[in-house]
């Protein structure tokens, strides 16, 4: 089984440690994983800003880059959602169909394909879990709080429960949006920042030392506010926790 690793553009540049953790974790779990160096962007930033037509080129490039892999794994529910859901505007060739079907978020890949039930990970900290929206409501990585599906499931919870020493805090609002929203964060800065502040407050007031999520973009936005306001709380991608062996 050959796995192609997709790393979102901003992670490549600003959060290499989260990408490295993803890569190492996959290696650790015995995957034959490769990072195709010609990769660019899934096209989401432009498309969400209303310019789907302009992102066609990057869609096609993504397909060319990744069609040869059995699975395409990305540490980002948001990019994965974009590939799976919004590549429907391309001609549905075999390659496009395959890439759409086989592109998975890291957490789905671990649980649904590798079917892991334990991890050699240790992270003795109080952690707040932020459910990134595209993973949550787009990929159904968890049952959103709006739905009445019982029993409620959450892939991120399941994975974090495998980590030794980790305590999850209970939030007042377990899946409210952080306010990033790509283009939204600069089009509507007032609400975007306010939403972020409110999320941070929820985590911080419950004693979380660290906020984690499946999408680094949410965390980048939250980190920007945390840093500006000097709040003693950190952000960390879930891959870093799952790959952690901190003593």
């Amino acid at each position: 089984m050959k796995v192609g690793l997709f790393i979102p553009c901003y992670m490549d540049q600003f959060y290499p440690q989260a990408a490295i953790a993803t890569y190492k974790l996959l290696l650790k779990l015995g995957c034959d994983v490769e990072y195709p160096e010609g990769q660019t962007c899934c096209g989401q930033p432009l498309a969400n800003a209303g310019n789907e037509a302009a992102s066609r080129g990057s869609y096609l490039h993504f397909v060319t880059m990744f069609e040869k892999y059995d699975y395409i794994v990305a540490p980002s529910g948001s990019c994965v959602y974009h590939v799976r859901h919004h590549f429907d505007t391309l001609d549905q060739t075999d390659a496009v169909k395959k890439v759409r079907a086989k592109t998975l978020d890291l957490t789905e890949f671990l649980l649904d394909v590798l079917q892991i039930s334990s991890l050699p990970a240790k992270y003795p900290h109080k952690v707040g879990l932020h459910q990134s929206c595209h993973g949550l409501r787009g990929l159904h990585l968890a049952t959103s709080s709006e739905l009445v599906n019982k029993p409620a499931a959450s892939k991120l919870h399941e994975l974090l429960s495998m980590v030794e020493g980790l305590t999850l805090v209970e939030l007042d609002r377990k899946d409210e949006c952080c306010g990033f929203g790509g283009t939204f964060s600069v089009k509507e800065p007032a609400i975007s920042v306010k939403m972020g502040k409110d999320r941070i407050r929820d985590h911080f007031s419950k004693g979380a030392e660290v906020i984690t999520a499946g999408d680094m973009s949410c965390l980048m936005h939250l980190e920007g506010i945390i840093s500006r306001q000097n709040i003693p709380i950190k952000v960390i991608h879930i891959a870093e926790i799952l790959n952690s062996d901190e003593i």
């Binding site: 290499p16 964060s185 800065p189 920007g224 840093s227 500006r228």
Partner: peptide
């Protein structure tokens, strides 16, 4: 607009691509 109320991420020495 971003930096009015938010800091930018701290830029690391090398990108993932470079590390890889």
């Amino acid at each position: 607009v971003w930096t009015k109320d938010r800091d930018l991420p701290k830029a690391p020495v090398e990108s993932f691509r470079e590390w890889y």
